[in-house]
Amino acid sequence: MNLEDQYDKIYRYLYFHLHDRHTAEDLTQETFLRFLKSRTYHDENRQLQYLYTIARNLSRQHFRDQTMTYTLEEEIDIPASENFEQPLLEQITLRDALQKLSPEERELLFLHYVNDVPVSVLSGMYKISRFAVYRKLKRILNRIRHELEVLENG
């Protein structure tokens, strides 16, 4: 497991939880400190799971009883090209579709497709079988596709 790679991913995960760059960085470093100091478990397959569990618990601790939400309120990157309307529209449409998902569904999508967390780690984190994770991901993507079609057709 490449720790520097995972640092960026954990930071990104925490950033979209907390929406604050500095807090996300602080908690990322705290996550890695705790992970490096404990090293109780040496099963390679579980190290990533523990890293995310530490990050998740730290962000929950930070918010106390607040519900974790993902909001996508950051500025949308406008590509530096002449024909930017289409990609921009696609991003806005996708963002709308993502907002209709529950926070847990968004988190699952984010972890697997953006942070490349393997299904085996996700099944450990969520305490469900791998088959259940695959099924959920497929269902969520189908929902998004359906939402996008509805939005595109007006």
Partner: peptide, 20 residues
């Protein structure tokens, strides 16, 4: 959809990584 999601969820670069 996955490709678009990756473009949507882009975070600013962490500042203190190397120092850490």
């Amino acid at each position: 959809i996955v490709e678009q999601m990756k473009k949507t969820w882009i975070a600013p670069e962490p500042a203190g990584k190397e120092e850490f």
